[in-house]
Design a protein around this nucleic acid. Sequence first.
DNA 1: ACAATTATATACCGAACGGTATATAATTAG
DNA 2: CTAATTATATACCGTTCGGTATATAATTGT
Lengths: 190, 190
Amino acid sequence: MTDNRSQLLTVATHLFATHGYDAVGVQQIVEAAGVTKPTLYYYFESKQGLLAAIILEHAELLLAIVQNAAAYDHDITRSITELVTAYFNYAQQNPVFYRMMLAMWFSPPSSEPHLNIADLQHQQFLIIESLFKQAATDHGNMRNRHAQYAATLKGLIDTYIALYLQGLVVNDNPELVYRLTHQFMHGIFS
Amino acid sequence: MTDNRSQLLTVATHLFATHGYDAVGVQQIVEAAGVTKPTLYYYFESKQGLLAAIILEHAELLLAIVQNAAAYDHDITRSITELVTAYFNYAQQNPVFYRMMLAMWFSPPSSEPHLNIADLQHQQFLIIESLFKQAATDHGNMRNRHAQYAATLKGLIDTYIALYLQGLVVNDNPELVYRLTHQFMHGIFS
DNA sequence: ACAATTATATACCGAACGGTATATAATTAG
DNA sequence: CTAATTATATACCGTTCGGTATATAATTGT
């Protein structure tokens, strides 16, 4: 779609990812989108509403992908491999949004960008944590460390994706997934 | 020191780390510091100059610590352990600055915060890379991967520090260092 | 066809932005 | 003790900020 609403979403995502939410003005967005300010406010009510709409637009797909990949089938290594693969594929297909998401997540805790992305991050965390909770029934030594494992794995994934998005790590996808997965497993079981 | 210059540096660091560089106004800074605007401009010339001064103030010590910890003594595991320990200690002692540094580093590449922190990050990278260059003389399989190893290790360290600063990972320092180090080494030699 | 609704533009608002011209205290040097 | 320098404040600058009152096109339902 190239209607004005979609155009605003696309353009704003790119600008936020490139320059940061605070650094981009509403005027700049509407000019880049070829519309005027009232059009933006007609669809999104506020600058923050536009940001929320961007996030909402991507959240459903991302969470569905993560949810699906994090299904536990009594093979934790396999599950983690699938999860990592899913994240890498998603980041590869949505590099602009993922970059924006990362920047917002690492923004200061009480900043507007961070507060807007916090919920989506938390939902991902819950899904990953649930994977480790299920796995703990097969691996006693993992018990009561769900939160730490989920946070660490998500952190590792985001670290590698950030390196990839910065071009500091090559994109031989399967090998990278293998390395990250086994690196993480080794961190748990050693 | 509690002179106005130091007061401005301290207050601004805290505000930038808490709310983000762009979201904090000059007026807000001087009010929190108990001075007026011309005082800020007298010492730092601009808002960006204030940011540069904050970074410069911390850069010397941080780089000295990293440089010292990254000395290679033909025991790569030991070197990495020391490096990781040094980073963890520094982050523990300068949590506000480290949080600000991370947020700026993860800001969009062409944003003002990112451009201001890029040099300090690059200097850290060079030091760590140099460690791996030296180690490559003892470990042939590491050759020509200095940059990737340095980027990955720095990314891992920052990930764990971010988790620690967010309270998502407990602070049993020595165990965390051991886990991260061996996790990273396993990623290399497997 | 025409009324209602949806979508877009012109022109503007007060407030906050980063930054400064100018004056005056406080300190230091001779 | 005074002259120069350093440090701080009052009051203001032009610009940009996010946001809106109002009017008018375009579309839709009947």
